Amino acid sequence: MMSSDEDYSLVSDPELQRIQFEINKCKMQYEGIISDQKVLIEACETNLHFTKQFDQRAVTMRAALQAEEKRQEDVLEMEKRKITDLMEEQSRLKSEIQSVQQDIQKMEETNYSLRQQSDVSTAVPERKVVFKGQTSGGGDSSGFDIIARILYPMEGGTALITFEDETVAQHILKMRDHEVQLDGNITLNVQALPVHLLVPSYVELDTQVCPQRVLVSNLPKMESEDRLLDKLEIYFSKRKNGGGEVEETDMLHDSGNVVVTFVENNIAKGLTDKQDHEVKIDGEKNHKIKVTPFLNGKIADLQTRETVCQRSVLLTGISAIMDQDSLQDLLEIHFQKTSNGGGEVDNIIYNPLGQHTLAVFEEDSSTEAQSQ
Rank of each mutant, 00 (worst) to 15 (best):
E45C: 11
P14L: 13
D346E: 13
G317C: 06
N189K: 13
F361S: 06
V168Q: 03
L215T: 00
R81P: 00
S113K: 11
T307W: 01
R176D: 02
E223C: 06
N185M: 10
L160Y: 13
I281G: 01
D282E: 15
H196L: 09
I234W: 05
I41N: 14
I299N: 06
Y202A: 08
K285R: 15
L229C: 03
M154W: 00
V203L: 14
Q181E: 14
Y30S: 11
T338M: 10
A268F: 04
N265S: 06
V259C: 12
L330T: 02
E344R: 12
R57Q: 13
D13H: 04
P211N: 09
G283R: 06
G157W: 06
S142N: 12
K106R: 09
K274D: 01
S319H: 08
V216C: 12
V130D: 03
V11N: 02
V308K: 08
I321W: 08
E68F: 08
G184T: 04
K38C: 03
Q37T: 13
I150W: 05
Q370C: 10
T249C: 15
I23G: 10
D85K: 10
Q372C: 12
S9Y: 08
H356G: 01
Q170Y: 05
G156M: 14
S136N: 08
K231C: 14
S9R: 14
Q29L: 14
N257W: 00
I349P: 03
Q336R: 12
V130E: 11
D329H: 04
T162F: 01
D276P: 00
Q191K: 08
T307M: 13
L151F: 02
E88I: 02
E22R: 13
Y202R: 11
N185C: 12
L188H: 05
E15I: 13
A192V: 05
V345R: 03
I318C: 02
